[in-house]
Write a protein that binds this DNA or RNA. Sequence first.
DNA 1: TCTGGGGTCCTTACTCTA
DNA 2: TCTGTAGAGTAAGGACCC
Length: 364
Amino acid sequence: MENETKKCRILHVDMDAFFASVEVLRRPELKGRPVVIGGAGDPTRRGVVSTASYEARKSGVHSAMPLRTALKLCPDCVFLPVDYNEYSRVSMRIKKILFEISPLMEDVGIDEAYLDISSRPEPPEETARMIKERVLRETGLTCSVGIAPNKLLAKMASDLQKPDGLTFIGMADVERLIWPLGVRKLQGIGPKTEAYLKEMGINTIADIASKGLEWLQDRLGKSYGLYLYDASRGIHESPIVTQWKPKSISREETFELDVSNWQAVARSLSFLMRDVAGAMREGGYEARTVTVKIRFEDFNTLTRARTLPAETDGLDVLRKAAFECLSRIELDKRVRLVGVRVTGLKLKNEQAERKTPPCSKDGM
DNA sequence: TCTGGGGTCCTTACTCTA
DNA sequence: TCTGTAGAGTAAGGACCC
């Protein structure tokens, strides 16, 4: 058992109902009330729930739910707009605490992180308790921590007891703690795959683990089948990634009301492209491919892409490419959303390095 | 009546080239 | 020289995550 504990050096730290908790922190009068954070904070307008407090969740409100639906389920809920700047500020304080405890930290979004605590002298549970205590003392917020031998299990562990939980999962616990869970609890299984698996009589993670590798690969593809085969057994070799570079930058806009005139779409695209170009310059990036996305009123979504002869951060060139993409889409229905994305990113000051041909593997 | 925004990764199809 | 094919690059769409 002690040996097993020693192998569990990955922590997953997940803030509890993060956005809602930050709002309650600065408006103590909301404590104990059902709070929903999402969109512009107006449940009569388009938008979805970003975070619901645990009180709101009791009414069936959950993230990604349309605000209008949330209002119907919970008319007493307090609806607030998303204040990303404030959450980022609090998030940075939390990440600083985690980094001090172990610099082998992987940032996963605004409210969670993985930590490799191999270098810590004390037992993992003690490190986890230290984290929870410092985060609470220095920010007033609670978090749930999972301890496991790998990232996959650590994340599942932190999810097992929420809020304010501390859960340990060793490889020996997989059968008892993981197998009874529904397939959706496995990272990488979303609503589509869940429905597909259900059709084949697979409802729990144990059901996945009962299938052979070939069986899974035949039905779900080689790479995904292998992932599920391993993951259902708690096997997942994925390193802690401490440095991250974006692969794409995008902006999109859902119109308050679907639009049918081309000018409105073009105006929005032009605005979004300028925003993307601004973000590129801020990060010092140039891009090679521009992709335009159009979502129609029936939710049918089309994309068109143009790859340029060379990377650029020139707004005129990028905008021209974006409009060329737009011209290839027939706007015969009302448009709900316009988006633009740039990929093939390269740091501007990396240009000199690129003169030597990339080595076959690292070049990918 | 619904279904955001900013990302990543994967699959499939197609084209070009060696 | 012709043809078949493998691999790279590109394009489009889809699933998933927070």
